[in-house]
Design a protein around this nucleic acid. Structure first.
Lengths: 218, 218
DNA sequence: TTGGCGAATTTCGTATACGAAATACGGTCA
DNA sequence: TGACCGTATTTCGTATACGAAATTCGCCAA
């Protein structure tokens, strides 16, 4: 039996809405967040908005200007290099854990995921491409059975989304990504951990290269 | 030239004070956070307290009870196994980066750090032992020159502190830790990355074993 | 026309107020 | 004596109020 969960507070809803707007690029880097405006737009008072902004600030999505209020954090190239370097350590490790712990229906689940991935590629819709890309990696974290990896990557993913949006909007195709995903799954299902790890590392390096080529122009 | 930074807001100060109280064990797992009480104790209104608690909640330091307010999160064994598994991936990687990028005065800095570590061990003061342990690893992250690693580990470290406090208060000696730190530095200064990574992995496994042996009793 | 100074306005952080929901308490009935 | 029900109290989330600091705007002088 499930526990009863009460509806999210206005502060949490406000946070989620703002975070989504930032991650999707709807709120551009450097853009100011005006508490009165946001409160009016969401039909709430400034109190939950203020609370939501505190949380965003603590997680690095917005920055203090020192003057009045906060602005959406910049997407710096350095930051993304460091983030992908980080993933270069975590993702292959997650794949190794996934190899050891993946559930019985992993094959079916992954084929399903790949199918959805290719469908998103064909759709050429950046939003669904970004979404399903995360779902793919989340599936791996899930198989890895490590809550810290899942939590940490969920946080970082919002930053990744921002950069990925920039990349995809520039018309860079995501087809390669899904070929790489396929190779990772292929190795994993075949029980070849070493190759799965290696393919994952390659996937990370390619993703970084694609992003790095586009980001400085922004 | 440094930028001028204005004093922290009451909300941020409240957050820092509460986080420190939680990490240090002053506020025990399961303990309720009463906003009125905290506000009165800190001589502020409930507003900054409420804001601070939102931030703590988003970072997993306190949990919603579903009823009234929040309680300090439990230290679960599962969570710590997952955290140390995570470190098993990150710390050796950070050491490898540190090997490539460490500054010229790394030798002097590390000898200094080791000296302070041994002094803390002799002092038998858990607080300074925990503090200097973090400083050691932070030095490595710093050398690694990767902001994502540093930021992520700073966040996780508050959770580690909580567990480490439990371990040290049970009288488990921290001498072994500093022998391990010494071996890592020794390998790193000798330019033997492979051994430095291996020593780091061993350090993580030992730390996990020490913690796991004590945690279930709590 | 442009630079500079001061008043008006904006906008934030924090305090206080208020209503709702949950807990705690006390009295009543078996 | 113990279980149960209704009321009082606690305590939270959110709204509103207020003061301070920064920015904007307009006026005046060079």
């Amino acid at each position: 039996m499930d526990v009863i969960e009460q509806p999210k507070s206005l502060a949490e809803q406000t946070h989620d809405i703002l975070l989504n707007a930032i991650s999707s690029g709807e709120l551009a880097p450097g853009e100011r967040l005006n508490q009165d405006l946001i409160a009016a737009r969401l039909s709430v008072s400034r109190q939950p908005v203020n609370s939501a902004i505190s949380v965003l600030k603590s997680n690095g999505f917005v920055e203090d200007t020192g003057r009045r209020g906060v602005v959406v954090s910049q997407i710096s190239l350095d930051q993304f290099v460091s983030l992908y370097e980080f993933r270069l350590a975590i993702e292959p490790f997650a794949v190794r854990l996934a190899h050891e712990r993946k559930p019985n229906d992993a094959h079916r689940e992954s084929q399903d995921m790949l199918k959805r991935g290719w469908r998103a590629v064909r759709s050429q819709d950046p939003v669904s491409q970004i979404e399903i890309d995360f779902e793919f990696h989340q599936m791996i974290y899930d198989w890895a059975g490590n809550a810290t990896i899942a939590d940490t990557m969920r946080m970082h993913w919002h930053h990744i989304r921002r950069a990925m949006g920039v990349v995809l909007r520039q018309g860079v195709p995501s087809q390669n990504s899904w070929e790489e995903h396929e190779r990772i799954i292929d190795a994993l299902m075949g029980g070849d951990v070493e190759r799965a790890e290696e393919e994952t590392r390659r996937h990370m390096k390619n993703a970084l290269a694609k992003t790095a080529a586009v980001l400085p122009q922004t």
